[in-house]
Design a protein around this nucleic acid. Structure first.
Lengths: 190, 190
DNA sequence: TTTAACCGGTGACATTCGTCACAAAATCAG
DNA sequence: CTGATTTTGTGACGAATGTCACCGGTTAAA
């Protein structure tokens, strides 16, 4: 819980009482590699704070896996559309390696938020960070070529390159695995 | 202010007192076509509720305009990254036609939110909707071809096609104007 | 009315990318 | 250590896209 406390403190002032109330909504949970945090078709009623390990979000489009996000330590993973609206999730969340999370239960979280506005503010800030991350990555696709997207990740998010296989990365970059190989080769030889 | 009231009511329960407090943070503002709501390099300290007309967000990449979003009546337009973090905006917001907005001033909004948790909750829900829209559109680029992206807009967001020129739309879809022409022709002839 | 500006379409051509097939290298399990 | 599996690289080829040039139709301004 220690990492989580630091994470919260970095977002908003938080009293002892708020922390005690919040803990009523929290559960530690471990996932094995390839275990699902959220499956397509389920309603997402949790926020997953990542304590150790990482997971990814992906769509299964006619049997083809399309990675759309990676979530590492000290981040929140969730389906914000499903969590907010109660609709079924269109994508999956799956552990990429042994994963330790702290789950925020939606219902209990809302109950706790009624008791203190600090929890409401925390929620707003979590969503804000989540939205900022969304915007950052969607920008890549709207503005840049595959090669430029790779270069952006290399400078701004090297942790992804270090921990994710090239096939996984290619899917995330929105190109075929072969295209990513060629981009890398072009740069080696020039 | 009537449209805004309905918008708020659709998001969260709102007392008379909350509405009166919120109004302290609100200002009506008109923009002429091609007038800027937010310029690249500025810090965004407003949420723009769109009452009438529409605007767009775009990046200027080495002199090339890349449209990234359109915002119509009954939506909030802003730069969520800049608004939340205080960093400078990397993109522009500009009126595409005569535009009537109601501006939420960030500083005054935070003051009002301290008085009542209903405003805090409203803020959380506005951000949530904004994040959901981000995710919806970024999904298009990660999963679909240009033609599929067009088809998605035609079925899910026909208002965009009705009000935006093909050149603007092509930029938003992330393809050259000519490519959009060819997609349209392919479908006519097949 | 005339002229200019804008909008949408299209042809030509080079480039890039996806797909399929296969091979080399790295990793893992027994 | 060894064989199997996974990961990565690459060649061939067709399809899709970007770029440039130009045209006709519409709209708006002079």
């Amino acid at each position: 819980m220690n990492n989580l406390l630091k994470y919260i403190d970095s977002l908003t002032p938080f009293s002892e009482r708020s922390w005690e109330l919040l803990q009523l909504a929290l559960t530690k949970q471990e996932f094995k590699k390839n275990e699902f945090l959220l499956k397509e078709g389920q309603v997402c009623d949790s926020l997953f704070y990542i304590d150790k390990g990482f997971c990814k979000s992906y769509y299964d489009i006619d049997g083809v896996v399309k990675n759309t996000g990676f979530f590492f330590e000290n981040e929140i993973a969730t389906n914000i559309i499903s969590f907010g609206s109660g609709e079924r999730s269109e994508f999956n969340l799956v552990a990429c390696e042994q994963l330790s999370t702290i789950i925020f239960d939606k219902e209990k979280l809302f109950l706790a938020a009624k008791e203190t506005p600090e929890i409401e503010t925390l929620g707003r800030n979590c969503i804000r960070l989540f939205a900022a991350k969304q915007e950052e990555f969607s920008k890549l696709f709207k503005l840049y070529s595959a090669q430029q997207r790779l270069e952006y990740l290399e400078t701004k998010h090297p942790e992804i390159l270090q921990r994710v296989s090239l096939a996984q990365l290619a899917s995330f970059l929105g190109v075929a695995r072969e295209t990513l190989s060629r981009i890398r080769r072009r740069r080696r030889t020039s």
